[in-house]
């Protein structure tokens, strides 16, 4: 086998993966989506019918809020943790990786323990003001759940980048008179940007598509993955479920593409 053929051979695993897990199922899903009573026009129903449209908008807003909040918390925390030695640092970092393995159901359950009807916040507020504060079964509860789930993984991504940041870059900026805010804007954040993009994209995509947490918290939360589930199982409208799935995929993909092009432009400093 000459080396050219061998190179082609190396493409095989990727080709099989692409075909089996991406192209074929998506094609099947598209065909399925077009098999409903309205045919391919079913896609337009997503936009015209308020229930579907609102669900996509709510999900998008939730995912954006989760991503922004996660990036804010993780970027600040990563800078605090990077290049700082203190006792218990290793323990803290390993504890942060703890929620990584939790399925959405467990995360949802923890949110209920925290902000549910018999939750921690509720019992404390009840004893203090006599009012039982409950937020677990709302979008806010879902937001907290996603945050709990996303912050550790994004933090670890950004932490790796923050530790690679040459400390003399910051020192040089300080010697030139830059304030801490200017250093963040001109030195630190540009250096962390690739990691923030990677982490943010992961966080965003997860928040768009996560199902378990929402399912555990409430059926009243109309995020798109829940909608797909109800369309598919309760309404047995497989074609609609397929159409919404594709729409969800497209919206996520488009949002990431926009963020990516922005990220590229920013790091090139055009």
């Amino acid at each position: 086998m000459d080396s050219r053929r061998f190179d082609l051979f190396l493409i095989l695993p990727l080709a099989i993966f692409t075909l089996a897990f991406l192209i074929l199922p998506l094609a099947r899903l598209t065909v399925e989506a077009g098999s409903g009573p309205q045919g391919l026009a079913g896609f337009f129903v997503i936009l015209t019918e308020a229930r579907f449209r609102n669900s996509l908008i709510v999900t998008l807003i939730l995912a954006i809020a989760t991503t922004v909040a996660t990036l804010t918390v993780a970027t600040v925390a990563a800078q605090t943790l990077a290049n700082r030695k203190f006792s218990g640092r290793g323990l803290l970092l390993s504890m942060l990786t703890f929620p990584l393995a939790f399925p959405g159901v467990v995360v949802g359950f923890m949110i209920i323990l925290f902000g549910g009807r018999l939750g921690l916040v509720g019992s404390v507020s009840k004893s203090l003001f006599g009012a039982n504060v409950v937020f677990a079964y709302s979008l806010f509860g879902l937001f907290l759940g996603y945050l709990y789930f996303s912050v550790p993984r994004v933090l670890l991504t950004i932490l790796a980048a923050a530790e690679k940041l040459d400390p003399s870059l910051v020192e040089a900026a300080r010697s030139l008179g830059a304030s801490p805010l200017a250093i963040q804007r001109d030195v630190v954040l540009p250096a962390l940007f690739p990691a923030m993009y990677t982490g943010g994209a992961l966080c965003f995509a997860t928040a768009m598509g996560a199902f378990g947490t929402a399912f555990t918290l409430a059926t009243a939360i109309d995020v798109t993955p829940m909608l797909i589930y109800t369309e598919f199982t309760l309404a047995t409208n497989a074609s609609m479920a397929a159409a919404i799935s594709i729409a969800l995929g497209l919206v996520t993909w488009a949002a990431l593409a926009i963020a990516r092009s922005r990220a590229m432009r920013d790091t090139k400093g055009a």
Partner: peptide, 9 residues
């Protein structure tokens, strides 16, 4: 600095 510490962006 030895590492130049130039701003890459």
């Amino acid at each position: 600095f030895q590492s130049y510490a130039l701003f890459p962006n």
